[in-house]
Amino acid sequence: MTPKPQTDIVFDNVSKFYGEVLGVNRVNLSIPPGVTSLVGPNGSGKTTLMNMIAGLLHPSRGSVVVCGVEPDDAEQFFRMVGYSTQYDSFPRGLTGYEFVECYLRLFGYSAKDTQRLAWEAIDRVGLREPSARRIAGYSKGMRQRIKLAQAIAHRPRVLVLDEPLNGLDPLARAETIALFQALAAEGSHVLISTHILHEVDLISDHVIMMNQGYVVAEGQIRGMRDEISEHPMQVLIRCDKPEYLASQLFGEKQVVEVRLHADRAGLLVRTRSAEGFYKLLNHIALNGVQIESVAPADDDAQSVYEYLIGHEESTR
């Protein structure tokens, strides 16, 4: 066996079964520093993989080592690693600031250091003002960002983020991606999972693709943007004035189709150009529509797999 670099996140023949159910199977990876995205449809094993990196799950077979340290060695490991999980849950009753501060205390920092690090992280995600309020009153996007603040607060070298862009509005999404890139430029590992294809090349060059528990492709993927624009995609937008938003979107050239969602609190939009569409949406959002969330609606395994693996073979 060739020795893997001490700077990488290394999976050595890792499998995880939940009883009979396959989580991931025979994963071999060596992830270098920089921004890496882990892409795959729901249920493909992204969360399982990330939970094993952080020791929340133990591999049924194989081993995971991060920069030469195993997650079992919690005291050393978690000074180096920060993980924001996909679980949208928080300890009861805490304000945003208390949440970040409480968990920094577990590191053993003094009150003064804790305070400084907590504010630094909260400022980085742009939540200074709401941090005095209880998390229970936060929007989904704010909850995502306070979790991010908690994960980066101790300045980890390795940052693992499970679906961190889920539920962010377009502006926060762009800011957050810029934050990832800044963190990576400081020399960190930033591993991000997403089931949203068009986000992938906004985020990173290095991509790991998963499907049904297997890593199906890994490497540098460039020029995805153009390919994506050939592929109409569907987006679900939740906002306060869906009818008004629909009327604004009709007739825009990127928009192929607009439908009101059955619950009348959102709409489904089919678009040809993700990037153009998000620019457009930003513009409309500035004119007084409160957009609560934007999420892609095609996340079935088939479309992802076809797009990522079968595209070239199937169209040429």
Partner: peptide
């Protein structure tokens, strides 16, 4: 109780021995 609230992982992601 923390498992049911889905908040136990926060402790397990800190550099604290089990």
């Amino acid at each position: 109780g923390e498992m049911m609230d889905k908040s136990l992982h926060y402790y397990m992601l800190a550099p604290v021995r089990r």
